[in-house]
Design a protein around this nucleic acid. Structure first.
Lengths: 341, 341
DNA sequence: CTGAAAGCGCTTACAG
DNA sequence: CTGAAAGCGCTTACAG
């Protein structure tokens, strides 16, 4: 491999000067800098990551702690992180935290302690308190993305507002019998996403004068949504609209409507959350989140944190109206300028 | 940060001995080894990646070159790679090769040349010849996964056999009017996956005495499959079965059948390829591949290559029969023991 | 089996 | 603006 001395020789300067020319740090004449850079490009020389890291204490590498690495959403987040990091000259190494105890310990107690990274992005992994302790003990800048703990800074979307946006969209169309499919109150109700969405739904409904809006529990899958929606549709007063806590749940609800011979949106309106890549095909109205952009934001935030700056803030979302929602059949939709009684 | 000298002091030995005890290399008494390891565990000491890499020339890190990091399949492959690598003490850093020219150059000419990795796994990125040149110039062990070049070793599934399995499943059920939806002949027909699948289909049909089986082109999406299937179903002699080159295409075909009021599998059988996570919900018969296992195999293969060994071989696939395929209505299915005329 | 010492390839005060 | 030299934290022949 060609090293710094080869470049120094080719450019007729010392290794120190090569280092300065390439890193941009320290004063150096424009002429020498140009000569050195040309020589380096010529020889295809690139600074060794290990030597540079050892000498400076900076690894130019960011770790990303991910849950089961197999969800559509996370893959998109990763892509966003990677693209932003790359443009700043950082690499990205992945640490996957599954449910396997030994594996998690390995990540926290060994992998992450090797000093390979300058900072950490933690995607929404659910961490036990002692795991957070160990992560903080690393003394590394940490940025969470929808983290389920508040012990390190995290980018979040305002999930209460997300749920309100979906619910108010339905209310605005004239629906009153609106049901929610999601998960029950699980972890910290102030941070747990399913809890926040359910809470946002309930409070939007209450504000509209509908205190006990129906709820059905489901895990975040098509199957779960399908089953829950079927149950909801069998009630004596079936809902005219469903707010599903995720797009996959919503897909399940859409299938349930077809199975029951219901027209969407004529008989049943459905709105989801996520912006799933298949949503367009299903014509699903949804509150889209932007995983790729979230990844970029997270990358910017760690880089800022590594730099001692703070770039924590709220993440965007947007209601995307498609064909799965409309006014209820025979419903009294509010018409602009003619307020309902 | 606690360093090797702290451990040496605590254990009452030299740094050299600590290094030997922790790495397992070099002779050392059982007693000292135990004492050193205890001291290290006590202090939470872990060898610095940078220092170790610089001293040994080994980074204990594998690079994974990935295409647009946003497909379900790749996410699963990555998960497989990560889990296997982690258990061998290796980290995994990702290099994403999008369509952006500058970004690809950055990966090939800079990131990968930093010496951060001991080996490379290349997921099915389509590489230009000069890009392959530059990758080989790295002089790193490289293992491809379904690579579109034969200039480095790669793990592959026998795509001809995959297509035959799907087609023969349909033929065995008694279908004769079988259509294929896939992509046209694109790259190297001997390596390009869509081409191989189409070719496998055509040859299985030809072997069954059906030379010019219908084909419709589509990109590998639900929309593409939907459109192509609709076209196929409008023919004078619509197919009784469709072999789709991917599960997403197959989903599109399933939707097309519903749109046309066709019963699946009564009026139309559909078989896909992939083992998509939603396949079960759709009841889709498919030729499943195993992305997680593929990832593990790829990890094993680079590790072997780093070690100078060869572990290249074929990847598994399996026909998974669900409810989207059956004998054609009124078709003359072969009955066991009663061969058809 | 164990230690002292050189060396891995850079970076950065320190001089000049 | 530029160079000589020490140092980053390990590993590994070389002695003993």
């Amino acid at each position: 491999m060609t090293g710094i001395d080869d470049v120094a020789r080719a450019a007729g300067v010392s290794a120190a000067t090569v280092s300065r020319a390439l890193s941009g740090r320290g004063r150096i004449s424009d002429a020498t800098r140009a000569r050195v850079r040309a020589a380096a490009a010529d020889l295809g020389y690139v600074v060794s990551a290990a030597a540079s890291a050892l000498a400076t204490g900076r690894a130019s590498n960011v770790g990303v702690v991910v849950p089961l690495l197999d969800r559509w959403f996370f893959a998109n987040v990763l892509d966003g992180i990677a693209s932003r990091l790359a443009s700043e000259g950082y690499d990205m190494t992945l640490y996957s935290m599954s449910d396997d105890r030994a594996q998690r310990d390995g990540v926290l107690d060994t992998s992450l302690r090797r000093g390979r990274v300058d900072g950490l992005i933690v995607l929404s992994v659910t961490l036990a308190d002692d795991e957070v302790d160990r992560m903080l003990a690393l003394e590394l800048p940490v940025v969470g993305l929808s983290a389920t703990t508040s012990r390190f800074p995290a980018l979040r979307v305002d999930e209460l507002a997300v749920a309100r946006a979906a619910t108010e969209h339905l209310l605005g169309l004239g629906h009153r019998r609106i049901a929610h499919i999601g998960a029950g109150y699980a972890g910290d109700p102030g941070l747990d996403i399913p809890s926040l969405r359910r809470h946002g739904f309930a409070s939007a409904m209450a504000d509209a004068g509908i205190p006990d809006a129906p709820f059905a529990a489901a895990d975040f899958t098509i199957e779960g949504g399908h089953r829950a929606a079927l149950a909801l549709l069998e009630r004596d007063d079936p809902p005219t609209a469903i707010f599903a806590a995720s797009d996959e749940i919503a897909f399940g609800a859409l299938f349930a409507a077809r199975d029951r011979g219901l027209d969407v949106p004529g008989d049943l309106s459905v709105v989801g959350v996520d912006g799933h890549e298949m949503g367009d095909f299903f014509g699903l109205t949804t509150v889209a989140q932007f995983p790729h952009e979230q990844g970029e934001r997270a990358a910017d935030a760690v880089l800022a944190a590594i730099d001692g700056r703070d770039e924590i803030g709220d993440l965007a979302f947007r209601l995307v109206e498609r064909t799965s929602t409309s006014a209820p059949r025979g419903g009294l939709a509010e018409v602009a300028g003619r307020p309902s009684p």
